[in-house]
């Protein structure tokens, strides 16, 4: 990856899009990349539609505005589709990665049929591994399959460190998240 990768996250407040954009940026930094991770702050409340962004590249990044033409769009909550135009500004050849039980073909139809789509049941995976619907970590696992940012094992190692700190060493939650990342990486379907 020699050029800048731009990512836009769509989620509802409370689903962890901001945390995901931060964790992804920190992981990419530890792999020697230049990074940005930031949410769009607004009057966000639990459940309201929110956006967050990442830029990841091999050169210093000076642009300080929202991502308007993403290479990848991450949809943490498929119920946003219809009320939010998640494909807006998507680059030619860009891809939309959706947390859904639908196949990429089915989701592609719902998105208007003109974009590349990948799907993964991040909520289902999260229920099975963490015991709660927290789709952000499995979506990061799926993302690493879709784009070549950093090797999955490096990412998992870094996440294990971060999550151990975040959850004060509660190993069950940490391992649940790691399993979620790994399963999503393996199960994501690219259309």
């Amino acid at each position: 990856m020699s050029k800048l990768l731009e990512i836009r996250w769509h989620a509802r407040g409370g689903q962890g899009a901001k945390t995901a954009s931060t964790l992804l940026a920190e992981s990419a930094l530890s792999a020697g990349k230049f990074v940005q991770g930031f949410p769009e702050y607004g009057p966000e409340r639990m459940g309201a539609p929110i956006r967050a962004f990442n830029r990841i590249g091999d050169e210093p990044i000076t642009i300080h505005s929202n991502v308007e033409h993403p290479d990848v769009v991450m949809v943490l909550d498929p119920t946003l589709i219809g009320s939010v135009d998640v494909t807006e500004g998507l680059k030619d050849g860009g891809i939309v990665l959706v947390n859904t039980t639908l196949s990429p073909e089915e989701m592609k139809k719902r998105l208007g049929g003109h974009v590349r789509v990948a799907t993964v049941d991040a909520s289902g995976i999260s229920q099975a591994t963490i015991g709660r619907d927290i789709p952000n970590t499995p979506m990061m696992g799926a993302l690493l399959k879709v784009v070549d940012i950093l090797p999955i094992e490096d990412f998992i190692e870094r996440m294990r460190k971060d999550l151990t700190k975040k959850f004060h060493g509660r190993q069950a939650i940490v391992e649940g998240n790691i399993n979620a990342i790994r399963r999503a990486y393996e199960e994501v379907k690219v259309g």
């Binding site: 940026a25 230049f34 990074v35 991770g37 930031f38 949410p39 990044i61 300080h64 505005s65």
Partner: peptide, 12 residues
Amino acid sequence: QDGFITSHGIEN
């Protein structure tokens, strides 16, 4: 520094 733009965005 610029509020939110640099104050709340993480970067290198």
